[in-house]
Amino acid sequence: MPMYFEGITNETLYIALEIINSNHEYNTFENGKAIRNINDIDGEFINPLSTSSFIKLDDTYIGLIDYLMENPNDHYPWLGLLMIHRDYQGYGFGAEAYALFENEMLERGIKHVRIGVLKENTKAHSFWKSLGFVYYKSSVWKYGNEILCYEKQLG
């Protein structure tokens, strides 16, 4: 079975937490804590603004993807998070999940996608650049973290 996305629900939020907590380095970059709890992520993945899904391979939950179809600040679609469980990193699943996301955006007629990457997350900068994202500005995000903003023209 190919890779696919499955929506996160209140009943499956604990699985999202397990994926997030497998990535201590990212959690520390984002909010200064290596481990998060269910209350930390509830509003992040269960809300009316963003689309939050699991990345699944067969019946295995291997990651998370979260995006806004239209950011109210600039009216562009923003990919907020693409995270692969630590146990499944290094096998190309992140690039495969992004390709699936990009195909969905193209089918919806979307021409550009933007992302913000925490300045300290050097692995992520390399990953997104390798997929064709181009830096266009720096900004400050929650917790006072500096993020580098990237954009990719699709199609």
Rank of each mutant, 00 (worst) to 15 (best):
I15E: 01
L17Y: 03
E18M: 11
E18N: 12
E18I: 10
I19V: 15
I20G: 08
N21L: 07
N21E: 08
H24Y: 13
H24G: 08
H24I: 03
E25A: 01
E25G: 01
Y26W: 10
Y26I: 07
Y26V: 06
Y26S: 05
N27A: 13
T28E: 15
F29W: 14
E30K: 06
K33W: 05
A34L: 04
R36A: 07
N37T: 13
I38H: 12
I38R: 09
I38T: 06
D40H: 12
I41A: 02
D42N: 13
G43H: 13
G43N: 14
G43A: 10
E44R: 10
E44W: 14
E44C: 07
I46A: 13
I46P: 12
N47D: 12
N47T: 11
P48V: 14
S50F: 01
S50E: 03
S52E: 02
I55A: 09
K56R: 14
L57T: 05
L57N: 05
L57C: 02
D58L: 04
D59H: 10
Y61A: 07
L64D: 12
I65G: 02
Y67E: 11
L68I: 02
M69L: 07
E70L: 06
E70K: 14
E70Q: 11
P72E: 05
D74L: 00
H75L: 13
Y76K: 14
W78N: 04
L79Q: 02
L82H: 06
M83V: 14
M83R: 09
M83H: 12
D87W: 03
Y88Q: 07
Q89F: 10
G90C: 06
G94N: 00
G94M: 02
G94Q: 05
A95R: 15
A95F: 08
E96H: 08
A97I: 05
Y98I: 07
Y98C: 07
Y98A: 02
A99V: 07
F101Y: 14
E102P: 01
E104T: 05
E104G: 10
M105C: 11
L106H: 13
G109P: 00
G109Q: 04
I110R: 09
K111W: 01
H112A: 04
V113G: 00
R114P: 00
I115E: 01
I115Q: 01
I115R: 01
V117C: 04
K119R: 14
E120F: 00
E120P: 00
K123S: 08
S126N: 04
W128C: 00
W128S: 01
W128V: 03
